[in-house]
Simulated scan of single mutants.
Amino acid sequence: MTRIAFGSDHAGYELKQHLIARLADAGHEIIDCGTDSTDSVDYPEFCAAAARQVRDGHADVGIVMGGSGQGEQLAANKVRGARAALCNCLYTARMAREHNDANVLSIGARVVGLGLAEEIVDLFLSTEFEGGRHARRVDQLTALEAEF
């Protein structure tokens, strides 16, 4: 079982609800940080809230989504300790975990369909960090973050 924090804006709401239901049915613990409808909202508070759940140890990973996923990734990455990766394909989902130890997945709900989104999430959740030379680079990212 994985503890997963979700955050989205209105454009990502329907995909968020779909993924939450699917992952809850699979036995994962879900933390829904909003939004709660398709009414227009600003994404930063919801995506940062999901990233904070990861940072604070309440969630193992976060998943954020909006229209393109780009702003949502940016908002999550403003949270110290979050390593959010925009993954709208399987390759980037695998690399985000294997090489960057990403702990927040961002998806563009207007970019990928339900089936591909499910595959991206499954791959992200099942892929382990390789460590090795990549650990050194993740440590360098953490050091950069500590500068500010």
Rank of each mutant, 00 (worst) to 15 (best):
A5D: 00
S8W: 02
S8N: 09
S8D: 07
G12M: 12
E14L: 14
E14H: 12
K16I: 01
Q17H: 07
R22N: 13
D25Q: 15
H28E: 10
E29Q: 15
E29F: 02
I31H: 07
D32P: 09
C33D: 02
G34Q: 10
G34A: 13
G34W: 02
T35P: 04
S37K: 05
V41L: 04
Y43N: 00
Y43V: 00
P44N: 08
E45C: 11
E45L: 13
F46A: 07
A49Y: 00
R52K: 14
Q53W: 01
R55M: 02
D56Y: 07
D56F: 06
G62C: 11
I63E: 05
I63Q: 07
Q70F: 13
G71A: 08
E72M: 03
L74C: 08
A75E: 11
A75I: 05
A76W: 00
A76F: 00
N77Q: 12
R80V: 11
R83T: 04
C87G: 08
C89A: 14
L90T: 13
A93L: 12
A93H: 13
R94V: 14
N100W: 03
V104F: 00
L105V: 05
S106A: 15
I107R: 00
G108C: 02
G108L: 01
A109T: 01
L116M: 12
E118I: 01
E119D: 15
I120A: 03
D122W: 05
F124Q: 00
L125T: 04
T127K: 04
T127Y: 06
E130T: 12
G132Q: 09
H134Q: 09
A135E: 15
D139R: 15
L144S: 13
A146H: 10
